[in-house]
């Protein structure tokens, strides 16, 4: 009798273990919740080659790793861009071809397409699948509001009579799914690239 009870108990433990494993595996592979839904939005932007880009429509079907930068930033924004580049290098090595990489400037007054092209060029970034976008001040303002990215002109330096300004800004890398919904956000300059790749794989 005792032997049968022990067997039933062991069987129950086994079922509980299997159930928890299934829940755990399902949880790991589940897409993160939507943070910002841009799927119905249509921002007209311009890329580093001066071509018009409809965002996010032109990226439909691709997962997008999205950074927010300004080209005059010497420290934080290059760290963000470099993190995206290193993630791209890693995924390219693995043959992942359904992910696109994008930096959006929150300094459209200074970040013209040629400035952004140079920003990419000096870093050895191939812009075939890593795009640098800018736009009109109003469109950028609207986009930043929709993704809750703040960029406020702050400290200044006077150079030859001209005043150069720097931003205090949100430090962000986002992951947008193929439908245009942002589902994951990281601190851009210090993003854990392994965690970022894990989220990209859940979302793509």
């Amino acid at each position: 009798m005792k032997k049968i009870s022990k067997m039933l108990l062991a069987k129950n433990y086994f079922y509980v273990f299997i159930s928890l494993s299934i829940i755990s595996i399902a949880g790991c592979s589940q897409k993160p919740e939507v943070i910002h839904d841009l799927s119905q939005k249509d921002y007209t932007l311009i890329n580093q080659d001066s071509s018009v880009v409809r965002f996010p429509g032109d990226y439909k079907g691709k997962t997008v790793v999205l950074g927010f930068i300004y080209a005059n930033c010497p420290d934080i924004c290059p760290m963000t861009t470099n993190n995206i580049k290193l993630v791209k290098d890693e995924l390219d090595k693995k043959g992942v071809n359904d992910v696109t990489y994008v930096d959006i400037s929150f300094d459209p007054e200074r970040d013209s397409p040629s400035v952004l092209k140079q920003f990419a060029d000096v870093r050895g970034i191939n812009t075939d699948n890593f795009h640098f976008l800018t736009g009109s001040k109003d469109v950028i303002k609207s986009l930043l509001k929709d993704v809750n990215v703040l960029a406020i002109p702050g400290d200044t330096t006077v150079i030859g009579g001209d005043t150069a300004y720097y931003f205090i800004h949100t430090d962000r890398i986002s992951v947008m799914d193929p439908e245009g919904k942002i589902r994951s956000e990281f601190k851009g300059s210090t993003a854990n690239r392994e965690e970022l790749i894990k989220d990209i794989n859940k979302i793509r």
């Binding site: 930033c73 010497p74 330096t157």
Partner: peptide, 17 residues
Amino acid sequence: DVVQTHETYKKGDMMGM
């Protein structure tokens, strides 16, 4: 043109210099 010593600082979720 100009070389200065700077620091990056954090203010809430934002970064400045």
